[in-house]
Design a protein around this nucleic acid. Structure first.
Lengths: 257, 257
DNA sequence: AACTGCTTTCGACATTATCGAATAATGGCC
DNA sequence: GGCCATTATTCGATAATGTCGAAAGCAGTT
């Protein structure tokens, strides 16, 4: 790990949490001398990754990140391939659908279809949720023990009263996910919102994303037709990506990565 | 400029252009030994800024960028304040509206309102356009000579047959923008698409963003009411941000930044 | 108007990233 | 399906590089 890149990433991460920070604030967070931080920040600024907020002496995240993330989304063929199917799934089920990928122990939403009746409008692309608190995340965890193992060994943060916070409980749930090829959550991330999710694999057979159907908890649990539509969509997308089988296999444990 | 951060940013930028690249490709682009590039890439990967595309040995941009950019958008108070007004402007004019900020010699779209009649649907947030080829960009250039000067001294890329490519011509246009408090472009970025734009200033009086009305070239030039609605929106947003006057003043030339 | 806190600059030092060579892994080809 | 060429990755010595303390420049405040 290159030290200055590690520090630069920590700076971005800090600005992500606090929005606006001065050099001194950052120096305190990273436990480094201000002059060191200044050099790092200025370098990031020259590439547009951070920006000085006009009028003040504080810094914030920069516009180059937006450009990069836009390209990132275009780069994902899962997303391009899945869009047809998530739209179809939203139509058939009458629910909002999401597509998510893993970002360490979180899920990040890379595509979103509104509920066809148009009830909620919030754009959710880019939103991140702790993986253990959502159906999307449980799918991704279930198929990647390299991420799940450390989580199960530690503490699980609670988002609502219903969040799974017992590591042993989570482990059981993850095993069930692999068995059934689907995960579920009821009010675990947002009160009043529940969802079910299924894995999407690519040519190499690895799980690269998850697809979910989101519904008001009042409509939970959904009927078998919804579950079947979901699994069908996941299977179709996986097939288009060249996956050899579905449901996919759990990824092997690696020493480190 | 810290060398390793500079190199890391160049790697991100390369992946932005080429989508998928192996270590050797990157090494060739940066003109560095593969082992050096490998260390940089691996460090970026550990922070999710770069990801190994599953199944291959190549790398692509990582999901952390999406999370960061999402926060970036939330961080911009211009955006939050302007959203009401761009929606209102779209309604009044019957045209699509955009909000853009500067990213070096480009404009990046940070907010977008569809045409009320719902004709086009493409999400444009995060799209970047060379500044000299669009009304939004001309506004930003006109009020920031530090960016405009080097552009006027160099070559201007042509996007359509109508793009302003003569630096002297651009200089004249920019002077007019400051005079009139508005910029325009006719087919310069996309054929069949024209727009007019106005500057948005903040508390410090600096121009921090530009707002534009986009219309089919068949409807260009727009009537005075559209221009007035645009200027009114720009003035209102600037006032909400605490700008002391409108139209704003041109930023001073700095030695370097 | 003077102060206090912050940001920013500068240069010597030693930590740190770099790079070449060797090894391991991959993918393509017959 | 097995071989070979290409590519990714590891490792350790070298010196180039980033780091950090002290001091100067700026703002905002009392």
């Amino acid at each position: 790990m290159i030290q200055s890149i590690d520090r630069a990433a920590k700076i971005l991460s800090s600005l992500q949490g606090a929005r606006h920070l001065g050099i001194t604030d950052l120096a305190a967070i990273l436990e480094l001398p201000p002059s060191t931080v200044h050099g790092l920040v200025k370098s990031l600024q020259e590439h547009g990754l951070v920006a000085k907020e006009p009028g003040t002496t504080r810094y914030m995240l920069g516009p180059a990140l937006l450009k990069l993330s836009n390209v990132y989304l275009d780069t994902l063929d899962v997303r391009a391939r899945a869009m047809r199917w998530t739209a179809e799934l939203a139509r058939r089920t009458g629910c909002a659908t999401r597509l998510g990928v893993a970002l360490f122990d979180e899920v990040i939403v890379i595509h979103h279809n509104r509920r066809p009746d148009g009830s909620e409008q919030m754009p959710e692309i880019g939103v991140t949720i702790p993986a253990h608190a959502t159906a999307l995340g449980k799918v991704l965890l279930a198929y990647d023990p390299n991420v799940a193992d450390p989580l199960i060994a530690g503490e699980l943060r609670s988002l609502t009263g219903a969040t799974t916070t017992d590591p042993a409980d989570l482990a059981v749930q993850l095993a069930q996910v692999v068995e059934r090829g689907a995960a579920h959550d009821e009010d675990e991330a947002v009160l009043g919102e529940s969802s079910i999710a299924a894995p999407i694999a690519d040519r190499s057979g690895q799980v690269v994303a998850a697809i979910s159907v989101v519904m008001p908890t009042s409509e939970y649990p959904p009927g078998d037709t919804v579950l079947n539509d979901l699994r069908e969509a996941a299977r179709n997308i996986s097939r288009e990506l060249g996956a050899p089988s579905w449901p996919p296999a759990v990824a092997p444990r690696r020493a480190d990565d």
